[in-house]
Amino acid sequence: MKKRKIPMRKCVACQENKPKKELIRIVRSPEGNVSIDHSGKKSGRGAYICNQKSCFELAHKKKTLQNQLAAQVDDTVYEELKKQVSETRD
């Protein structure tokens, strides 16, 4: 029986390769809107971040999401991301 290949993605903050399912995807749509992609299937340019508070804080401080997506990331996206990270790590 063949083993399925697990898709790996790199966190923009810590630069670690992890399984895609363990990361949070932030996507810039073709129209230029930036949002969190809960399904992992939205079309557009995507960036991945670990589900850890330290990675969120590093990405926010260094503005790595803005650099990776080549778009302005709104504060509402950061607030939603912060909420999602803190909910999963309690």
Rank of each mutant, 00 (worst) to 15 (best):
Q66D: 13
N51G: 08
F56S: 00
R9N: 08
I36F: 07
S43G: 02
K63Y: 05
M1S: 11
E87V: 06
A13K: 01
K2Y: 10
I26M: 04
Q52E: 14
S54L: 13
E57Q: 14
D90V: 03
R25E: 01
G40W: 11
K42N: 10
Q84P: 00
V77F: 08
V12G: 01
R4S: 10
G40T: 09
E57D: 14
C14H: 07
T64G: 02
M1P: 02
N33D: 12
V77P: 06
M1C: 08
E87D: 13
C14L: 05
D90M: 02
Q72H: 13
N67C: 02
E87K: 14
R25Y: 04
F56V: 01
G44P: 10
S35L: 12
M8P: 02
N33S: 12
H38G: 01
L81W: 11
S86F: 10
S39F: 04
R28D: 02
H60N: 09
S86G: 01
E16V: 12
G44V: 05
S29A: 10
C50I: 02
P7G: 06
T88H: 09
I36V: 12
N17P: 01
S86I: 13
K42E: 14
L23S: 03
Q66W: 05
M1D: 10
T88P: 00
I24R: 02
N17K: 15
I6R: 14
E80A: 11
Q84E: 14
A13R: 00
R9D: 04
K63I: 03
V34K: 05
V85L: 08
G32F: 06
K2A: 11
K82F: 12
V73L: 04
K18A: 11
I24C: 01
C14W: 09
T64N: 12
K53D: 07
E79W: 04
G44K: 08
D74S: 13
T76V: 06
N51C: 15
S39L: 07
I26D: 01
T64Y: 12
K61H: 14
D75I: 14
N17T: 04
K21V: 10
V85C: 07
C55V: 09
S39Y: 00
K83S: 12
R9L: 06
L23R: 04
Q72C: 06
E87T: 12
D74T: 11
G46M: 06
K21H: 14
R45E: 10
K62N: 13
A59C: 06
A70I: 09
A70K: 15
R9C: 05
N17S: 14
S54E: 14
Q68A: 14
V12Q: 08
R9G: 08
P7S: 08
Y48W: 14
R89M: 06
K62E: 15
K63C: 01
L23Y: 09
Q15W: 07
P7F: 06
K21Q: 15
G46C: 04
V12C: 02
A47S: 09
K53E: 07
E80I: 01
H60V: 00
K63A: 13
E31P: 03
P30D: 07
N33A: 12
L58D: 04
V27H: 04
L23Q: 01
S54T: 11
T88G: 15
T64S: 14
C50M: 08
L65T: 00
K20E: 11
C55P: 01
N17E: 15
E22G: 05
S39T: 15
K41M: 06
L65D: 02
V34W: 09
K62W: 01
C50N: 05
R45H: 11
N17A: 05
